[in-house]
Design a protein around this nucleic acid. Sequence first.
DNA 1: CAATGCCTTACAGATATCTGTAAGGCATTG
DNA 2: CAATGCCTTACAGATATCTGTAAGGCATTG
Lengths: 221, 221
Amino acid sequence: MFKKVLIAEDFQGDNKSIVDTLKAELTIPEVQEEFYCDKAYNRLQVACQTPEAFELLITDLSFKENHSPRSLTNGVELITAARKLQPDLKIIVNSMEEQAVKIKGLFEKHHINAYVCKGRQSLDELVKAIHAVALGNTYLSPQIDLNTAKNVFELDEVDLFILKDLAEGFSKKEIRFRLKKIDLRPNSESSIDKRVSKLFDEFGAKNSTELVAKLIREGLI
Amino acid sequence: MFKKVLIAEDFQGDNKSIVDTLKAELTIPEVQEEFYCDKAYNRLQVACQTPEAFELLITDLSFKENHSPRSLTNGVELITAARKLQPDLKIIVNSMEEQAVKIKGLFEKHHINAYVCKGRQSLDELVKAIHAVALGNTYLSPQIDLNTAKNVFELDEVDLFILKDLAEGFSKKEIRFRLKKIDLRPNSESSIDKRVSKLFDEFGAKNSTELVAKLIREGLI
DNA sequence: CAATGCCTTACAGATATCTGTAAGGCATTG
DNA sequence: CAATGCCTTACAGATATCTGTAAGGCATTG
């Protein structure tokens, strides 16, 4: 079992219950907790220079904004920074995120070791996840089905720019000029039309309004 | 202080930490917890018929869906049902919702006694809220500013129908027929145009796409 | 009951959206 | 280097969107 674990979670209730559960149900000598990504990263960094580095990081994905400026603003950024600092660190993500595409990305791109979805059994699942990861395995909440993550359609920079502008009410003519302004190509009206029409097919939308609505609901823009 | 409290919260971590905090920091003889709205309502109902009814309900707003069918699907429905059953019941809402408009509505329409926003101090705030409510006062998380809730523009049934249809990619001509079909009026294309244009002004949108985008982001449709 | 205000509707006209066709640019392939 | 495929762009035409004007219906007011 792990000897030194760090928890990064901004909600007091979740944070406390994770700490309590780890202390009550697992024999981990040292459990530390933080409410901010930056502070969590600092702890990792400091511990890394001693013989007792952290062995496991349990982190949320979203962290509420606050008056104080942040350099790491969310779990993904924390994970990226942590992996760079300490490639062998085990990472368990504990979040409300339920979208298969995003969770798949965490495993594939960020090589997390487990994903626990907040819910009615999440503490029990977290304990299972820790056991699995300690044995070198991965863990994923059973309600998440990664096979539904078909739609790994990659929205590139231009797609995202167009979509965000559409959501802000710009016409395609305006978007054309806005693309030109920042020298992003292709930027003809026709190309914008073509791209958007392609996205209609891709996401099963009949027009721009439906497309933007769907993508906002899926959290992609 | 309260003698009998019920907690309705579907996330295990939040649920556990609230129960633990109440037991550790307040002298409440009986704290019960539920993970489903329907089950919480049942408990209220049963207790109501005995001399020991619940005095305080602490509830979340959103409850995850599940295989089992539900008659009460969210906190607002639970609150409505509970108020009907037991008008003098004190209610504290503990949720992630941060939108002033919605929280204002909870106080004004549903007469909740306190609102605690999940965050870095929410357990401490919850304790404060319980003390306040026990003394007959209300409590609101300090980061919420109800004065920003200017936009209490009421979307009526027809507005909502039109907006939801727009978000599903229906054209105004199609929406016209869909309104007629369910005999909802006004339903001329012209009236739809007029209503939508009014909403552009109301929400500061330049076209349908931006309007729908804004309303989805604000959680109104 | 005339005047007023508000809502609904029809209609018109300017733009915007969306689809389809075709031509040119460019890299890859045989 | 001709052939191919893919992307970009221009253009055209059918609809859809959005705004503005005007007329009629209806309730309220003096």
